[in-house]
């Protein structure tokens, strides 16, 4: 699909970068002038994906890279790809099961993928154990101002 605008960013998988990553994606999406609710949903979904990479991908080792690609697609759709080069997920279905967590001792709720699914329109997870994981999300952003105008007329 034709990409209207694109942003690419790589940073180390450190928890200090969680806030930066979700804020960056939202700042990019702001050009669509989306609704407050859609922007909050996007922010949360990105935070979940990035946190997963930070918590699980490079467990016990040096924090490796996380790469985020954000694209603006026609029709007000935001495409987000979040990739790490970490340990990978052997059983994706199990990882996506609500309340399942491989790190319960750290009080991870096991709801990261559930939130990503709920807050975006499409979620795809691909992973190769020992090579890394890629999460792709798409979300159509409702135009804040235009929608309000439409409601009034």
């Amino acid at each position: 699909m034709h990409t209207l605008n694109e942003l690419k960013c790589t940073f180390p998988a450190r928890s200090e970068n969680e806030s930066f990553a979700r804020t960056m994606v939202c700042a990019f999406a702001a050009q669509l002038d989306p609704t407050v609710e859609d922007l909050a949903d996007l922010r949360t979904a990105v935070s979940e994906a990035v946190t997963n990479s930070i918590v699980h991908a490079y467990r016990g080792g040096v924090p490796g890279p996380i790469t985020i690609t954000v694209r603006l697609l026609p029709g007000g759709v935001i495409y987000i790809r979040i990739t790490d080069r970490g340990c990978g997920i052997a059983d994706i279905a199990q990882a996506m099961t609500p309340l399942y967590s491989s790190a319960p001792a750290e009080e991870r709720a096991g709801l990261g993928f559930t939130v990503m699914q709920s807050f975006t329109d499409k979620l795809t997870v691909t992973s190769r154990p020992g090579h890394g994981t890629t999460v792709v999300m798409r979300k159509k952003m409702q135009h804040g101002t235009e929608q309000q105008t439409a409601d009034c007329s």
């Binding site: 922010r43 949360t44 979940e48 946190t51 009080e107 991870r108 709720a109 709801l111 559930t114 939130v115």
Partner: peptide, 13 residues
């Protein structure tokens, strides 16, 4: 101002 599922983990714990 912001909360993701980490907040849910906090509540559950």
């Amino acid at each position: 101002s912001f909360m993701d599922s980490s907040g849910i983990g906090l509540i559950m714990g």
